[in-house]
Write a protein that binds this DNA or RNA. Structure first.
Lengths: 225, 225
DNA sequence: CGGAAACTTGATCGAATTCAAATAAGGTGG
DNA sequence: CCACCTTATTTGAATTCGATCAAGTTTCCG
């Protein structure tokens, strides 16, 4: 079996597919909760998620944590590693994880010979930047209800684009602690908001999956236009 | 006179200098407060600030505004325009402005023949991403005092790197409304925080310039480590 | 089954917002 | 250069959204 077959076959706007030009490679694995990368340590390549979820975050000296993004299968873990030799963020596995690494050098030389790969990579970087800009706006100017509704909708859209959602249901491995750290809230308040969403018939979270029960209303609550 | 001479001669980690390889070009100008670019309208090139300040922002349908970055002389206005044909943010002149545009095509072909330019551009994009990640953390996990202290320190550092600060003093064309929209606060609360900083002997804002009176203490208040 | 982690719920607190009004600063035409 | 008008800033009082504190309760694993 050729690797990264999963990476290659993934579709969707953010899916990273190299085509068959790269050599076979073995994948790496990590268990749920494991720290994949610690901020400011050296990296020599770019990782792509093959299976499972991860997230990037910044931790302050006093323990405050901000989650910057959730990484799904097909996502590039650290786009900036192509240029930088260390990352400014840490990365942790949210579920059991399978991912593979592309060395800086092979990727850069590939991009020189294959303009398509360059364009694709550039596009991923731009999307990442645009999503981060949106997150800044969420945290700076939106209410708790809006932030959480938008997080749910964004995850649903990203999973849907990869064919990883069944209608209105999709896998949801996040703990409320993760939602809190991604939205700049406390776990207690996240619990209250999720509870109110549940009572209002907007969403339902059972086990490790989430079902949207009233998409229109959830969109309305998110105040997105 | 060759243009963009100002762009070319600017130093500092974020200063964008093309070298003498690009043809002369005339610059464009805008008055303070003028909207340079409206989100989602087409763009055909990348702008670089030659003189004056600008800022990028996202505006919600109901008037809430989030400022994403302040742009100083030498800064690239819209790095993503190299790849995208429209921006997801708007750009407004903070002071009277002079800037020049590089077409997508000339820039891309230049990057192909001059790897140095590519590296420099990539580096600017990465710095931009890293600063935005920091901003997310500021808005999600830091207090009002910390956010404002960090904004002042960041501007001082950026201006210092360009030789645009005289010791502890530097030009400061922001209104409190801009500080508020950049830090996710209200103008009223910004006034209170700035007032307390002033009373504590940390900073002083007179006319259009800011002086840091107690750098160590301002750093301590910012809780940066 | 048992123990730990995650979630829920209530009560209280607090940082920042909102509302309101006064004062200061800035810009413009006469 | 001044008078006037608009926009900023300051300050106080009341309010609110979300945080914190403190138990319960449920869920999840081993």
């Amino acid at each position: 079996m050729r690797e990264p077959s999963i990476c290659r076959t993934l579709a969707g706007k953010s899916g990273f597919s190299f085509g068959p030009t790269l050599p076979d490679r073995s994948h790496q694995t990590a268990h749920a909760g494991q720290l994949i990368y610690r901020a400011n340590e050296p990296v020599d390549g770019v990782d792509v998620i093959c299976e499972g979820w991860a997230f990037t975050f910044i931790m302050l000296f006093d323990g405050r944590r901000q989650i910057l993004s959730f990484l799904l299968p097909g996502d590039v873990v650290s786009t900036t590693a192509l240029v930088r030799d260390r990352l400014s963020v840490s990365v942790q596995a949210l579920t059991d994880l399978r991912y593979c690494r592309f060395s800086k050098l092979e990727l850069r030389s590939l991009m020189e010979t294959e303009p398509k790969v360059f364009d694709q990579y550039a596009s991923i970087c731009v999307e990442e930047k645009e999503e981060t800009d949106q997150l800044v706006t969420d945290l700076g100017r939106r209410t708790a209800d809006e932030r959480i509704a938008r997080l749910v909708l964004a995850l649903m859209a990203r999973l849907g684009a990869r064919g990883m959602a069944n209608g209105e249901s999709f896998p949801f491995p996040l703990r409320q602690r993760h939602i809190a750290d991604a939205t700049g809230l406390t776990p207690v308040h996240v619990s209250r908001v999720i509870g109110s969403f549940r009572n209002a018939g907007l969403i339902e979270i059972t086990g490790r999956s989430l079902t949207v029960r009233n998409l229109d209303e959830l969109r309305r609550v998110s105040s997105t236009r």
